[in-house]
Design a protein around this nucleic acid. Structure first.
Lengths: 359, 359
DNA sequence: TGGTGTTGCTGAAGCGCTTCAGTCATGCTG
DNA sequence: CAGCATGACTGAAGCGCTTCAGCAACACCA
């Protein structure tokens, strides 16, 4: 029996206690200019003594037809997702923007399908959704569409009637690969995070390289491979390892495999800094010196890249900005704006000490 | 003009179209046994063609007086919080539990006060809150109380009428310190994460060591210091560095300071694995070998601890369990249960290669 | 003096849904 | 055939709030 949890006070309770109408109490909270400040004080005071904590958020949402919340859809579970600081930074940027406008953030972690379950999406109390790097045509995206909610996608292909922010992944990878080619490297290995949401780690077969549903993986892998091919390095001669997540330890595993191929690559191209850190580790394990025996490049430029051993050459993308922009877009859509043209954020190669001319 | 965003269909729209009552349509979604399956099919089909995505979550919440969401309150912003994988793991455990029961997760990041703003809390659409390591008497906690929401706290002191899960921090630290004492160490340094939510990093003065509002920091620091003192090592002779967050780089910074004291500590006690990883890095920077010149212990036993260089001796706590338990408790409270007695999770010292006898 | 604002408050209509007490056939039992 | 379950559906109340037209009172101005 929860007899102790007796009915909480409502607007009416307070109104009755003060002897005014319910509308006036509502105004005391939402439109202070609509009543005398003395009355307002009295109302607030009475509310306090009654233990009334302010208008019920759900009822308010129903009446205003707005829940003041943005939903954030992830391609995977939380622990996997957050092993990459890049996501934390993006999400933090988003949270700050959203939080600053008194909106809250509803997290929708994904499962093996590469996104949250549709049932979760259709029951989520949010009035705008942000999709972060979901695979093309994830079921969650349909669920958003049938609910008719505004949507902003990050790192995903254009969708009808949707705002979008993304980064020049392909160009970034081209720059990184070119940098290594310029240094004289000819033997490469590629370390990428998931190409598909199936949780598989391992060497990437030829057919698995095509029809990659994660846009970011597709573009980064493509960016590396295309650039190498143009320079005369056959893609078939470039071993590619797919890690099912973007974390250090998975990176180390993959790099170990890549570095034990014959002939051994003199340069490793990674699709994230975390993977690159793992690669540095793997090199140490194998007593290879970086950049003496091996050059390594990452992607993201997370803060730690400047402090790793050695400091990492990597492609910088404006992570916090990405989150902030997404947040702003979400708020804009909420305000009724039409999706503007995609926000494209620039990238730049940051040369540090993990790359050097081929010996 | 959002003339294109014309009124979405509601239960009534569908009911009218099918020619049944609204209650029946509602039943089609919520109580399939209350109507013939043929009619149900017809209703669902009509709904589909009308573009009706199912009962509106907000309205449903109002009617059922339950929003099927759990709020998660953090002591800091997201980027800071997630730089420690420990949080990701806890949150993942919680998310899985909660998600499995079709509840969603509302994230409430904290600010400089060491918790989310009260206004955020009182407007959050959640019907149970989980507080993660907020400082004692954070304003957010009062906000939860005045809303009368059930609360489960993780790593925080007991609060009236509140469920609680926590870990034997003090005991864990005692074990770690004892281990080092047994190895013959007498010169220690301590590396702790925030003692207060004020964002300060630096050496910890004597007075700052008392009245620490973060329970975990208080217990871990206390556990280390008490144990050392009992063994005859004066707390005043133990330099303590406070990092404002639990991340590697901040750990490196602090460890560098600790390792340049005279006399140099032969052992470093850290309050988290992330800080310990930073310490390993700092040792490398100073060309000290671990565990030859320096022993290091961490706390948490995150997966990476087994793979660091050298593998880290640390206090294991069951992180995923912690999240899962918190989730279960939240769901139980939601179901009307009274807060059970606190769930106390055990810890154990995991000896790896970062500690060795004093030279 | 009459017109024109202001200020401060209220009544009532929703927001879109769930739920519960019925109602009405229909089939079954003895 | 009376009596009684059973199954399928409905009407209406209510969840707690916002909002807007409207009203009374009063002040101000020419």
């Amino acid at each position: 029996m929860d007899s102790d949890r007796r009915r909480r006070p409502t607007l009416d309770t307070v109104a009755a206690a003060v002897g005014v109408s319910r509308a006036t109490v509502s105004n005391a909270y939402n439109r202070p200019d609509q009543l005398s400040s003395s009355l307002r004080e009295r109302i607030l005071e009475t509310a306090r003594t009654l233990g009334y904590a302010g208008p019920d958020p759900v009822a308010r949402s129903l009446a205003t037809r707005s829940s003041a919340a943005v939903g954030f859809m992830l391609p995977q579970g939380l622990s996997g997702a957050f092993s990459d600081p890049a996501l934390s930074i993006v999400l933090d940027g988003l949270a700050q923007t959203v939080d600053g406008h008194d909106h809250s953030l509803v997290l929708m972690p994904g499962d093996a399908t590469g996104g949250p379950r549709p049932s979760i999406v259709s029951r989520a109390q949010a009035d705008v959704m942000v999709a972060y790097s979901l695979p093309d045509s994830a079921p969650a995206l349909d669920a958003v569409a049938t609910r008719g909610l505004p949507l902003v996608v990050i790192d995903q292909p254009e969708l009808p009637d949707t705002a979008r922010v993304e980064v020049q992944d392909h160009a970034g990878c081209t720059a990184a690969a070119t940098h290594l080619l310029d240094l004289g490297h000819r033997r490469f290995g590629i370390l990428t995070f998931a190409l598909r949401p199936d949780g598989v780690s391992g060497p990437v077969s030829h057919e698995r390289r095509s029809d990659v549903p994660f846009r970011v993986s597709r573009d980064r892998l493509g960016g590396y491979l295309d650039t190498l091919e143009k320079a005369g390095v056959k893609p078939d001669n470039v071993p590619v390892w797919e890690a099912r997540g973007s974390d250090r330890e998975l990176g180390r595993l993959g790099a170990r495999w890549l570095l034990t191929r014959t002939p051994r690559p003199s340069a490793l191209l990674c699709t994230s800094d975390q993977l690159a850190f793992g690669a540095l580790q793997a090199a140490r394990d194998l007593t290879l010196t970086v950049p003496g025996d091996l050059s390594v490049v990452g992607f993201d430029d997370v803060p730690e890249a400047a402090y790793s051993d050695p400091p990492l050459t990597t492609v910088r993308q404006p992570l916090a900005d990405k989150g902030r922009r997404a947040g702003e877009l979400a708020l804009k859509l909420l305000a009724g704006a039409r999706p503007p043209r995609p926000t494209r954020l620039g990238v730049s190669l940051v040369e540090r000490a993990s790359t050097a001319p081929r010996k």
